[in-house]
């Protein structure tokens, strides 16, 4: 179900990775002015409300240069919230295509990762945003904390800088929590006992 999308052909670092002065200036400018556009592709609105806290005084992301833009033509980062409904699938793709290169995608929330609570709904694309458009970074949570979103943005900027490999983050990374591990271990024991 989780179809992998090959990202090597759209990697923005492929061309500009040589360390000439021109490329350095270019990269510096890109990293320091990431403008974002927010698209709600069928979220329950929880993630959207949490996203807006990022531009409030407490978490102000303008200090990293992040600005929310109205037009996809003006944005560098597409922030997608929610599982992609069949209705919004085409629009999401269109918005993605309207953005000028280089562009990045940030998936917010469990819904964007896997469909979350809307998984297996009749009206939802199965498997989250990464089955529709290539996603650079996912931020887990339902909804994610603002700190987690800022962390996601910083990881995204690291990718743009070339410090991290894009493909490491192109699929949802699920880090098992300790409780989960122990629960799984208990399950295993039970099944072995049977």
């Amino acid at each position: 179900m989780n179809k992998t999308i090959d990202l090597s052909d759209i990697d923005p670092n492929a061309k500009g990775s040589e360390k000439t002065i021109e490329n350095r200036i270019r990269n510096w400018a890109r990293i320091n002015s990431p403008w974002a556009i927010h698209y709600n592709s069928g979220s329950c609105n929880g993630c959207d409300i949490e996203l807006l806290t990022l531009i409030t005084p407490r978490y102000d992301v303008e200090r990293f240069g992040v600005k929310l833009q109205g037009s996809p033509r003006h944005a560098d980062i597409l922030i997608v919230t929610g599982s992609v409904t069949l209705q919004s699938k085409d629009r999401l793709i269109r918005i993605y295509n309207q953005m000028p290169e280089p562009k990045f995608v940030l998936g917010l929330g469990s819904c964007a990762i896997s469909g979350g609570v809307f998984q297996n709904c009749y009206s939802v694309v199965q498997g989250g945003v990464s089955n529709v458009i290539p996603v650079d970074v996912f931020v887990p949570g339902c909804p994610p904390r603002p700190e987690a979103m800022i962390n996601g943005l910083i990881i995204l900027l690291d990718i743009a800088r070339g410090k991290r490999q894009k493909s490491d983050y192109s699929q949802p990374m699920i880090i098992p929590s300790p409780e989960q591990d122990s629960a799984q271990a208990a399950d295993k024991k039970e099944s072995e006992a049977e």
Binding site: A29, R30, N32, S33, W35, E62, R63, P102
Partner: peptide
């Protein structure tokens, strides 16, 4: 809010100048 850094408009401008024009 904290607000942007001093070089923010310069970075914005450079980024826009090297971005793809659709």
């Amino acid at each position: 809010r904290v607000g942007p850094r001093v070089f923010q408009p310069v970075a914005d401008m450079l980024k826009l100048l090297v971005k793809e024009e659709v």
